[in-house]
Amino acid sequence: MATSQGSEPRVGPEDSVGGASSPAAAIDPADQLARLGRSWVWLLGAAMATLVPGILALVWPDVTLHALAVLIGVYLLLIGAFRFVAVFGRDSDRVPGLIVAVLCVLGGVLCLRNPLQTIAALSLIIGAVWLVSGIVTLHTAIAAKDMPHRGIVMAVAALGIVAGIVVLALPAESARTLTRLLGLWLVLLGLAETAVALAWRSALRRSGITGHEMSGPAI
């Protein structure tokens, strides 16, 4: 018996390969990274990745140069990963954020590749990363006039610029001096980034929407 034409299944755009309901669209990596990057919890995780190494450096200032290089290397790799994911949560130009993420990862690899390098080399790496990251973040915050808590983000960027300049301009004569200097700035930056994450959570709650529906802050 012939089947009536009305009972035949219809194939629409949503049923085609790559359509809205296809498995590939449902688990799109870029969309998942964007949702994660716009979450205040992810921002808080990045802040903890800065704050914890700073506390460790201040609590144990008598670390060897080898241990200090490893600590800085791991810190930069973690921050690079956090910033890479956060880039996908932005609706604006992502290139500056990607440049900062790559710079952080490159700095981390350089520290871990040769952990017995000089104090001047470590200062140059961390100072350059903070300076470039602060400048890029400040530029992005100034350009994004509709960014929630824009002033806090600009303040964090300015703090990063100052930290980079201080580390580059003030030569450390020993690993202990460099450890204390880096520990102090890491704690200050971590606390400032924590304030940004909590401010972002407050903005999301006031808007009454979920974290993946707003463009994330530029840090």
Rank of each mutant, 00 (worst) to 15 (best):
L36A: 06
L159K: 09
L112W: 07
V167C: 10
V52E: 01
G37I: 04
L181T: 10
H66V: 11
G208V: 03
L68E: 04
D31P: 10
P9D: 08
A143W: 13
L44M: 15
V100T: 15
T210K: 05
G211Y: 13
A121M: 12
M1V: 14
G19I: 08
P23Q: 14
S7M: 06
V196S: 01
A81D: 10
L112A: 02
I135K: 10
L186C: 09
A203I: 01
H149C: 03
A86C: 06
L168T: 14
S39A: 12
T194P: 01
A175C: 15
V136N: 00
S7C: 15
A157R: 01
L189Q: 01
M1D: 10
V196P: 00
A20V: 10
T3A: 04
L178D: 00
A57S: 02
T177Y: 08
L78Q: 05
L182E: 02
R205L: 13
F88C: 11
E14M: 08
A86V: 13
I152A: 10
L131Y: 08
V52S: 03
L170M: 04
A34K: 09
R83Q: 03
T137I: 14
F88G: 03
F82W: 12
L33H: 07
V17K: 11
I161Y: 02
L188I: 09
L98H: 06
L181G: 04
A67Y: 08
P23W: 13
G6I: 07
A192F: 08
C104V: 03
T118F: 11
V52A: 01
A30C: 15
L71H: 04
V59C: 08
V17W: 12
G54T: 08
A197S: 15
P53K: 06
F84D: 09
D28F: 15
V196K: 00
L131A: 13
P61Q: 08
R205S: 11
V132D: 01
V87T: 02
R150S: 08
L44W: 05
A67G: 14
A203T: 14
S202N: 15
E173Q: 09
A155R: 03
L103D: 02
I142Q: 07
V109H: 05
A69G: 10
M1Y: 15
L186W: 12
T177I: 07
I72Q: 06
P61G: 12
H139A: 13
T179P: 12
L181V: 15
A197I: 01
D62H: 07
D91R: 15
L68G: 11
L178T: 00
L124Y: 03
T194I: 11
E173H: 02
S133G: 09
